[in-house]
Structures are given as structure tokens and as C-alpha cells.
Simulated assay, not measured.
Amino acid sequence: MSKVQQGMVLLIEAFHKYSGTEGDKHTLTKGELKGLLNAELGDFLGKTNDKTALDQIFKDLDANADGTVDFQEYVTLVACITTLCHEFFTKGK
């Protein structure tokens, strides 16, 4: 498997590690999202203990306003964070 394919598999596995622990296995609740953000992205984002910040992140991600974050909405978050990291690490090169 190529590195890109491995990355895709890892993104899918990370989503499903947290989805369904509180509800639908195809979406993330706010609690599941918090667990994912803290465990998988905490080094980049810091710990999400601020309820107001978590509420805003969840609201921004929940594009269809159904009260959950689906896989496409999760991938949007990862893509945005990846873009910011790319810009940070390539700045001045």
C-alpha cells in the first residue's frame, strides 16, 4: 500500500474508533468528537476542555445541522488542519 493509501486507512480507522461509542456508528456525537480531538489531534490542537470552544467546533463541523459529525464533515476538519500544518511547516522555504 502506498503512503497515501495508508493515510486514508488511518483516517477511516480513527473515525470508527470513536464513532458509535455513544450512538450511531456512522457519526460522531459531541462527546465522541471531543475524545477524538483530544486523543488523536491533541498535540496540534491542545486539549479541548473548553466547552464553548468545543461547542463552536462542533457547530462549525456539523454542516448539515443534524446534531452529529459524519465522516465527510470529519474529513473536512482533518483537511483544514493538514492545510494549516503544511503552511506552517513550509513557510519561508
Rank of each mutant, 00 (worst) to 15 (best):
S2F: 10
Q5K: 11
Q5S: 14
G7F: 06
G7C: 04
G7S: 05
L10R: 09
L10W: 12
L10V: 07
L11H: 05
L11R: 13
I12T: 04
E13N: 04
A14Y: 07
A14W: 01
F15L: 05
H16N: 04
K17S: 12
Y18Q: 06
Y18P: 02
S19Y: 04
G20M: 01
G20F: 02
G20C: 00
T21M: 12
G23N: 10
G23T: 04
G23R: 06
D24V: 09
D24G: 14
K25G: 02
H26V: 02
H26W: 11
H26R: 13
H26E: 07
T27M: 03
T27P: 05
T29K: 09
T29V: 06
T29F: 07
K30W: 01
K30H: 08
G31R: 05
G31I: 10
G31L: 02
G31Y: 01
E32N: 03
L33D: 01
K34R: 15
G35V: 05
G35W: 14
L36Q: 03
L37T: 10
L37K: 14
E40N: 12
E40C: 08
E40D: 07
G42A: 01
G42W: 03
D43A: 10
D43S: 04
D43C: 00
D43V: 14
F44Q: 09
L45Y: 08
K47N: 13
K47W: 14
T48E: 01
T48H: 12
N49V: 12
D50C: 06
T52C: 08
T52Y: 11
Q56N: 06
Q56W: 00
Q56Y: 08
F58R: 01
F58C: 02
K59L: 03
D60Y: 00
L61E: 07
D62E: 02
A63S: 06
A63W: 00
A63R: 14
A63P: 11
A65Y: 06
A65D: 05
A65G: 00
A65I: 09
A65E: 01
D66M: 13
D66I: 06
D66H: 13
G67A: 07
G67E: 00
G67I: 07
T68N: 12
T68C: 08
T68Q: 00
V69Q: 01
D70R: 02
D70M: 01
D70S: 03
D70K: 04
Q72R: 10
Q72D: 04
E73K: 07
E73M: 02
Y74T: 09
Y74L: 04
Y74N: 10
V75M: 15
V75D: 09
V75L: 15
T76A: 14
T76Q: 03
L77M: 06
L77C: 03
V78T: 04
V78C: 12
A79T: 13
A79G: 15
C80W: 02
C80Q: 07
C80R: 15
C80T: 12
I81P: 14
I81H: 12
I81W: 15
T82Y: 14
T82I: 10
T83I: 00
T83C: 05
T83K: 15
L84S: 00
L84P: 14
H86Q: 02
H86Y: 09
F88Q: 10
F88I: 11
F88W: 10
F89C: 07
F89Q: 00
F89K: 00
T90E: 08
T90S: 05
T90W: 03
K91S: 09
K91N: 11
G92D: 07
K93P: 13
K93L: 04
